[in-house]
Design a protein around this nucleic acid. Structure first.
Lengths: 229, 229
DNA sequence: GACAAACAGATTGTCGACAATCTAACAAGC
DNA sequence: GCTTGTTAGATTGTCGACAATCTGTTTGTC
């Protein structure tokens, strides 16, 4: 018999599709922080009843990108400077751990996947597709978490990365500038292929710090405005 | 005018109460790993319709203690030896970070709270209330996360601690032995009050390793059995 | 007897309607 | 004018019923 691995077929519930739609809308910044999600309006737009929509919202609330107040409504989370700082400082710690766990497990498949994802970032950059650029960069970064073979760690990172994606998207939207064309991931990929784990860990920290500064500037600008809905 | 801080009033939705009930049932081991949650049966027992029950279940699925398969059902997560290893190795990393963040923020209120929680553990131990003993021990442990002033970190730990609580509860249930009467937290509390941060971090690691060994033995025994529902 | 198709029962997913609650505008009393 | 009570509209929370899907059994065919 032929040795063939089938991947699980897609979830075919309305709920799952709604989750995907809302998540994407939130993470790309189409839904603004603090914005209220009107159940009736959204359910009519999606041609769906409120039941699966509400269940989808509960999921996203637990995922940390929506927040819910009983009898008041469900809102996109607000973004503060402190949130960004917190997320990044935790990300540093997790990165160091993920690299440590992944390091001895690196093999040819890992390197190939690393190159593939790196290529995806470069392609999105050339196409000036900022949304996709953020997505692919985070996916490149996430490989060490997938390879670390620790399901709790992976889960944790996925929650964290949701927020990071949202922060980056908001940042991009706010500054409205073209994306840097240079390849900031070249060194990272090279180090992950090398033999000096400490160097890779250190670079991950510094690399993060780089973008972090830009994000922080954006966060501080948010602090100055009064919150709106 | 008197200076009085009011805390937010409790959520009064059925959903929130259902979540609390189901979470407790799962974490104390009343619901066994792999067990299916029949919506109709549970909703009738709770005298509630399926809508808020299903929403509650979605939350717990995202919380990581239930798992859902479309059109098949929602189940309590299975516990494998690897899950326990993964959770603990991540916990070590987070502990080290939490202590680092908390360290400079320690004040009298922190020490008082530390003592209060330590006392709660001792009381539960004296009362031979194993469930409460697990709860209070984790709460004692969680103080450094509350004090670290990093909301993402706290959230992460709360998700992780849910699982740890479940693992410990299952372990206790399985061995069916009286709890050790000795106070294993004395040293930890003393170190958290001291001035050597490195020592506190090291102890946190080793202290965890201690209970870890017991848990692992339990996990391995699980591996040998075939899964049931 | 082995296999596949059809069926029945149970369970999950979704819907539309109703109840509970909130918000804002307005009126009443001091 | 300011506060308090009332009301109307909108929105969220909950319910009961129906549709879609799965699972195990039975039936029919070879």
């Amino acid at each position: 018999m032929a040795k063939l691995d089938f991947s699980p077929i897609a979830d075919t519930t309305r709920r799952a599709e709604i989750v995907a739609l809302l998540r994407r809308a939130t993470l790309t910044g189409q839904l603004e922080p603090g914005q209220k999600l009107n159940e009736l309006r959204i359910s009519e737009q999606m041609r769906v009843s409120r039941a699966p929509l509400r269940e989808a919202m509960r999921e996203l609330v637990q995922e940390g990108i929506l927040t819910s107040i009983p009898y008041a409504g469900t809102f996109v989370i607000e973004v503060t400077a402190k949130d960004i700082i917190d997320a990044y400082s935790l990300n540093k710690v997790l990165d160091e751990f993920a690299i440590e766990q992944t390091w001895p497990q690196r093999d040819q498949r890992f390197f190939n996947e690393l190159d593939r994802r790196h290529e995806a970032v470069k392609q999105a950059t050339r196409a000036m597709d900022t949304t996709r650029q953020i997505e692919t960069a985070l996916q490149l970064h996430g490989l060490i978490y997938e390879w670390a073979d620790n399901s709790v760690l992976l889960e944790t990172w996925q929650r964290l990365t949701s927020r990071l994606q949202m922060y980056f998207a908001l940042h991009q939207r706010a500054r409205n500038e073209p994306v840097p064309a240079e390849d900031v991931h070249e060194t990272y990929v090279a180090l992950m292929k090398g033999s000096d784990m400490g160097a890779a860990q250190r670079h991950a920290r510094e690399h993060i710090d780089l973008d972090f500064e830009e994000l922080l500037a954006y966060a501080r600008s948010l602090e100055k405005r009064t919150s709106k809905n």
